[in-house]
Computed example of a mutant assay.
Amino acid sequence: MADRFTKMHGLGNDFVVIDARERPVEMTPARAHAIADRSFGIGCDQLILLEPSTSADVKMRIFNADGSEVEACGNATRCVATLLGEPSVIETLGGMLRVTPADGGAEVVLGEPVFDWEHIPLAMPMDTRDMPVAWDELEHGAAVNVGNPHIIFFVPEADAIALDELGPRIETDPLFPERVNVNVASLDGENQLQLRVWERGVGLTQACGTGACATAVAAIRAGLVKSPVTVSLPGGDLIIRWAPGEPIVMSGAATRVYDGETDWTRFG
């Protein structure tokens, strides 16, 4: 009997979504990595495994393209919301997420952002609003945890940064015990940001929902923008709303590309 999956994307950040709520699927890092391979597998930035939950409507597990399991993915959450088709609560390693499908996409309510250095986490105490560290021209970063760890750099032109070279260096720096997602952003009009993301375990990506959330929060904290914030990524725009002491709300598109069948044992 073949196993079914759905290929989806949120602004070009693409996923293989497996609904294992009724028929369990064993997933290992090696299998997830093989499925995500664009030459020999199905190909995706992340593999999403849906499982039963005792505390929410569904449990969502997220595997990056390198096979590592991670806490959160905003674009994938919007995609899952459209599959569920009704307001739902999704359990993730990063916490409970409330989702509401909308025309062509979904709204996701994440938890409150976390700024304490030990909860990013960082390897040593420092001011996460203005970090006294630098990697070449990227300096004075801000760190935010929005279910997963992010560092954000505000620069004059996001497109001018060699993120393909700096991203992996920063991601794997010993300062970040659990690695980190790297965001470079520039102002692009009133309450608008241009953003590029090096995603932990993935690389350069067309869009990163949690990166957009973390960047908008850092920009609001720094007084650069006011909520709601339009974050423009290579794959499209996300709208982020946040006020101190409140959860983050993200709105954006989600697209169902096709449904397929395969045998997961082919991937190890």
Results as ranks from 00 to 15, higher is better:
P149Y: 14
D130E: 08
M60P: 01
R221F: 03
I152K: 00
G10V: 06
R23F: 08
R21M: 03
G209L: 05
L187F: 00
A253I: 03
E165T: 10
A218I: 13
D116Q: 12
L138M: 04
A81C: 06
E71W: 04
R23C: 03
P29Y: 11
A254Y: 04
F15Y: 13
L175V: 03
V25N: 00
Q46E: 14
P101A: 07
G12E: 08
M8W: 12
N181A: 01
N64H: 08
H9N: 15
G67W: 13
I62L: 05
P174A: 03
L50G: 02
V155C: 08
R21H: 12
E91I: 10
V225E: 04
A72S: 10
A254L: 07
L47M: 11
E112Q: 15
G211C: 13
A142G: 12
W264E: 07
I120F: 05
E137A: 14
T92F: 06
A20Q: 06
N145F: 13
I90L: 14
F15N: 02
T100G: 00
I170A: 06
G141E: 12
G104S: 05
G260V: 11
M27Y: 01
I152F: 01
W135Y: 10
M60Y: 13
L93C: 00
I62R: 10
A72F: 00
R21Q: 12
A32F: 06
T215F: 05
F63A: 14
P29D: 08
A214E: 07
D45V: 00
M124Q: 15
A254D: 09
E118A: 14
A243F: 05
